[in-house]
Write a protein that binds this DNA or RNA. Structure first.
Length: 552
RNA sequence: GCGCCCAUAGCUCAAUUGGAUAGAGCGCUGGACUUCGGAUCCAAAGGUUGCAGGUUCGACUCCUGCUGGGCGCACCA
């Protein structure tokens, strides 16, 4: 908003300088307008003089001075300074900040989010955990990142579809069937060896117990029984996964089953296409994809010599299917242990004539759970993993989601269970939520004193004259920049950091300044400020999927 | 052996994507409640950004080489 006005001022000045012959007419620049971290350097600054310096072979400072002389900034800025090195610093008028706040208040938050997506369609595929066991903590992090990223993109003008890819075909489902069968035989008193590669978790026993209750529906022959149990168990596990996700506040638009790709013949069709273009070849009785043609990676098997298709084969078909559904952007969110898989998938998309740049893969690093300051071990095979459900039961949805978004997704995350449970100042979730509850409380008091919510419309923002108040306004308005940056960089964790910073300013302001006082005009103006603040906190928390309580 | 990611205050992490004097929280030390919620605030201490070069007006950020950690390198998914 204000940034755009500053950009316009710079553009005008450049045009004027071109007219005067100082700058060559053909020069085109898109200057970066940034907010300096040091307040002393103004509200915005630009590096345009440095960019021009190399093109017109003049001193950056000289260019900056000349630009400022030809600049018509009085409407927006008190002053524009040229710093020693050549930065141009813009000092925005307090009145401009106040008026912008008032405008947001009048027009509503939702109309202020920048339209980054412009209606483009995005498919975000995430979690996609195999239906062979419950979600663990790592899936939880992926779920939080995917869900919040979806919210961010929706706010900024994208049309978003959230999809879960269900690997309900292949060997691991078969193993689940065998594991269930073995547990069932134990229950029936006819145990068979429980092999090491079977799924060890107790949930398999629970499912076997369910089956024991409906013995009649189990086919008599072992192979058929295993197949039946595989289906039954994976459906059961999938139900549990959906339930855990719902408890976590994550709802998918679509569950896409791998078996569907086989049933529709899409896998075979994809393989035929690749073969026809000589991107696939036979060797040693297997069908190989020429990954090396497109990426620095080895050729990979699509069809094994036993005739079985690999996961890679169906995954190519899956991504082809995504493109055919006319998405402009595909986002895959994977565990970072799958990073080696990226080159071959990108290669396959290129082979199919798709733009591989329209696939973005976000990698989620591992989560280490800490309890009593010590890491809690996890391993799917041994059944020792900590499930998402356990963490949710322990710390609650709000803390879990917030904690998952306190780190860049490709950085290791240490999740301190004790800290997440604490209802104290050390817990960052409470720090943010407390600010909201505190503002709500102030409004309750204001109501008691006979101030109507509607009267905020008549508040005179000109009465917000304190330095802290201008700083708060700037903080509030930064929200829209942060959401934009979050969308452009696909980094949802920025929202978390922003909120912590914003409410920090509020708490500080609160401790110094009384909101409700004798002067009704000032009171109203401050209430308007706080109203915008709570709206931004609410909006930010709702993007994170975290509640904004009125009382705590 | 090859590839990807990470390395920043005692600890956990930021740093506007190449910008100005590298910032927060926790912890430590000292302070603030007769008034809107002390689940809060204020102040102080804490750094050769793993090491060595390079690119340029300018590097935590980009390039090269080391060191140390994580993860991959299947006719598994």
């Amino acid at each position: 908003m204000v940034r755009r006005q500053v950009r316009e001022i710079i553009r005008e000045a450049c045009d004027r300088c071109k007219g005067s012959g100082f700058l060559p007419r053909e020069i085109e620049l898109d200057p970066i307008i940034e907010t300096p971290r040091d307040q002393e350097h103004g509200d915005y600054s630009t590096n345009i003089a440095f960019l021009l310096a190399s093109k017109v072979r003049k001193n950056p400072q000289e260019i900056a001075r000349f630009l400022v002389e030809h600049m018509d900034f009085e409407k927006v800025c008190d002053k524009v300074e040229v710093a020693a090195k050549g930065f141009m610093n813009f000092y925005v008028k307090d009145a401009v900040w106040r008026d912008t706040l008032k405008r947001v208040s009048d027009e509503g938050l939702d109309s202020m989010f920048p339209n980054v997506g412009d209606g483009r369609k995005v498919l975000i595929e995430f979690v996609s955990s195999n239906p062979t066991g419950p979600l663990h903590i790592g899936h939880g992090r992926g779920a939080a990142v995917g869900d919040v990223l979806a919210n961010v993109l929706m706010k900024t003008g994208y049309v978003v579809v959230k999809e879960y890819y269900v690997n309900d075909a292949g060997k691991q489902i078969d193993t689940l069937g065998q594991s269930t069968y073995a547990r069932w035989r134990e229950l029936e008193g006819h145990p068979i060896p429980f092999e090491e590669h079977f799924y060890q978790g107790d949930y398999v026993k629970d499912i076997a117990a369910l089956l024991a209750e409906r013995r009649d529906s189990i086919p008599p022959h072992k192979d058929e029984a295993i197949r039946f149990m595989a289906r039954f168990a994976s459906d059961e596990v999938m139900c549990g996964i959906e339930r855990d996700l719902a408890d976590f506040g994550v709802v998918f638009d679509n569950y896409f089953r791998e078996t569907r790709l086989y049933e529709n013949g899409e896998v075979d069709e994809t393989l035929k296409t690749l073969e026809a273009q000589d991107y696939a070849y036979e060797k040693d009785g297997a069908l190989w994809f020429r990954t090396g043609l497109f990426e620095r990676d080895e050729d990979r098997v699509l069809v094994k010599s036993d005739g079985e298709k690999t996961y890679f084969a169906s995954d190519i078909a899956y991504h082809k299917n995504k493109f055919e559904r006319n998405f402009d952007l595909l986002i895959d969110i994977w565990g970072s242990d799958h990073h080696g898989y990226i080159p071959r998938l990108r290669a396959s998309l290129e082979a199919l004539g798709k733009d591989k740049e329209s696939l973005k893969v976000l990698l989620i690093q591992f989560v280490t759970l800490l309890k009593d300051g010590k890491p809690v071990g996890m391993s799917t095979r041994s059944g020792q993993f900590t499930t998402l459900k356990e963490v949710l039961d322990e710390v609650g949805r709000d803390a879990a989601r917030f904690f998952f978004l306190m780190r860049k997704s490709d950085a290791h995350l240490e999740f301190d269970l004790d800290l997440a449970k604490k209802t104290s100042n050390e817990n960052p979730v409470y720090y943010v939520q407390y600010a909201h509850a505190r503002i709500e409380s102030i409004f309750r008091v204001a109501m008691d004193e006979g101030i109507e919510a509607a009267s905020l419309r008549d508040a005179d923002v000109g009465l917000l004259t304190l330095k802290d108040e201008i700083a708060l306004i700037k903080g509030i308005l930064t929200f829209f920049d942060v959401v934009e940056g979050s969308a452009r960089s696909l980094e949802p964790h920025r929202i978390t950091f922003y909120l912590l910073d914003l409410v920090g300013r509020f708490h500080s302001y609160y401790n110094k300044t009384r909101v409700i006082g004798d002067d009704r005009g000032v009171t109203l103006a401050r209430l308007l400020l706080l109203d915008m603040l709570r709206q931004v906190i609410r909006s930010g928390l709702s993007i994170l999927g975290v509640s904004a309580p009125e009382r705590m």
